[in-house]
Design a binder for these strands. Structure first.
Lengths: 252, 252
DNA sequence: AGTGTTTATCGTCAGGCAGACGACTATGAT
DNA sequence: ATCATAGTCGTCTGCCTGACGATAAACACT
């Protein structure tokens, strides 16, 4: 298999981002409006070309920062604040996925706490958080009646894969805390699970499970009543990244 | 983000394969000897360029067939025989991973039953099954004293990721049957788990678990004594792809 | 033929964990 | 004061797992 540089076809390589957050009890993804053809005016996942001297993870972190202002968590520094979880998702390379040229896209998955407001290069009307069910419908409309689906290119497939990855990964890892602010309550964490899985969980069993798993949550000592009702203890994410035994997703 | 074709750097895109099998109670991977620089004479994972009109999965299936003669399972046809499991693993794109040029490699993971003999374009001396521990050592030597490690490029990292994927995936899926021939016994399946995880499992509890999981195994009616001892029932893989609850990997 | 070895298969028992759900606590709203 | 809301602690029951005893059916010896 010779590596003669003239013997292989040239590809463009991009990174596309599935950026997920939980807003108003719903799992939402970041979508940006396309400014030029093809799919001009349609919504798509944020993304862009990988630069010549850039690693794939670097490119994804750069795009994430450009679109949301979020810094990506360095996996080597688990106790870092104010950063989003970022991981490689999958790579999409159908020869016809972009009508103009051969583009291979390395999709990444980012999980972020609820953010003040989206921005896309400072232009708010060209970026939005939309519930994933809206984005994944064959033809979806947002609350303002504007069409938000289907997404451009194969981005519906990418988003679907990203959502499925997130849904399964919070089962056996502490990743759900990436959707929470630095300090959070057990109830807030439970509402994250309920939003991502779109199910209702028993508050008592959930409390027992997460507080009984060593290393998952560490109490900060403080309390809050920001959710109403009795004051709740505040926690922050512990060092444990794997949940064993896992949190079980209820059957249907 | 303009898509001007001159505005992006050109990449070469390859597929690399982690082909795993179980031989002589050990998890083995397919390695091929490099015929030209860089890393000439060293062992590497099989792989090659993605062609201009080819999907990534097609390219991986083609490389797999070229190197092993195996056809890849079509995931839409679960009851297919004589095919290997093939799935995308991850993508590696460090700018310096290939010293000559910018190469992005989409690694794939293939699981195959024990095969008669490896072949690399008909040249057996340039392909071999090697235990993954040998291939992953900082400097490993095969049973014949020939150095087999370290692998070329970043292939040790890719192999390590593939092995970890296989180890975790047989926990919660029926993927371990991909290492078995069409018909197999419970004991043979158990030896697959033991080889992949490098642990010893209790035959009685394992038998209870796999025969008690609906849809995992379907008896064919036949028996065999090819492992010695009391005749064992023959099974084939059932339709179930997910194991719930999962098979638990022992601690330690 | 008998004995040992190997592998397969069935059973038993105790501990751990999850689902269902009762009870109580501490806030803010009316 | 009363109610609604959310949080937290317990109890009970059933399922699953790990540890391990016992039996079954083949082959290899002697």
């Amino acid at each position: 298999m010779p590596y003669d540089p003239s013997a292989f076809p040239a590809f463009a390589v991009t990174v596309d981002l599935v950026v997920l957050t939980v807003r108003r009890h719903a799992l939402c993804a970041l979508a940006v409006r396309r400014g030029e053809p093809p799919f001009q005016g349609r919504w798509a996942l944020p993304g862009g070309f990988v630069r010549a001297d850039e690693d794939l993870a670097q490119a994804a972190a750069r795009e994430l920062a450009e679109e949301t202002g979020l810094r990506a968590h360095d996996p080597a520094v688990p106790a870092q604040d104010n950063g989003a979880h970022l991981e490689q998702l999958a790579t999409y390379g159908d020869p016809k996925r972009d009508p103009r040229m051969r583009v291979v896209s390395v999709a990444h998955l980012a999980l972020a706490p609820d953010l003040p407001a989206p921005r896309a290069g400072g232009d708010a009307s060209n970026a939005r958080w939309a519930p994933v069910e809206e984005l994944l419908q064959p033809s979806g409309y947002g609350r303002d009646g504007e069409p938000v689906a289907p997404l451009a290119f194969d981005h519906a497939q990418i988003l679907s894969d990203g959502v499925e990855r997130a849904r399964s990964k919070i089962e056996y890892s502490s990743l759900a805390t990436a959707f929470c602010p630095t300090e959070f309550t057990v109830g807030e964490l439970r509402r994250v699970y309920e939003a991502v899985w779109a199910v209702a969980l028993d508050p008592r069993n959930f409390h027992r499970k997460v507080t009984g798993t060593p290393g998952f949550l560490v109490p900060t000592g403080g309390t809050t009543t920001r959710q109403g009702g009795r004051p709740a203890q505040l926690f922050r994410a512990g060092g444990a990244t794997l949940l064993n035994p896992p949190m079980l997703r209820p059957e249907v």
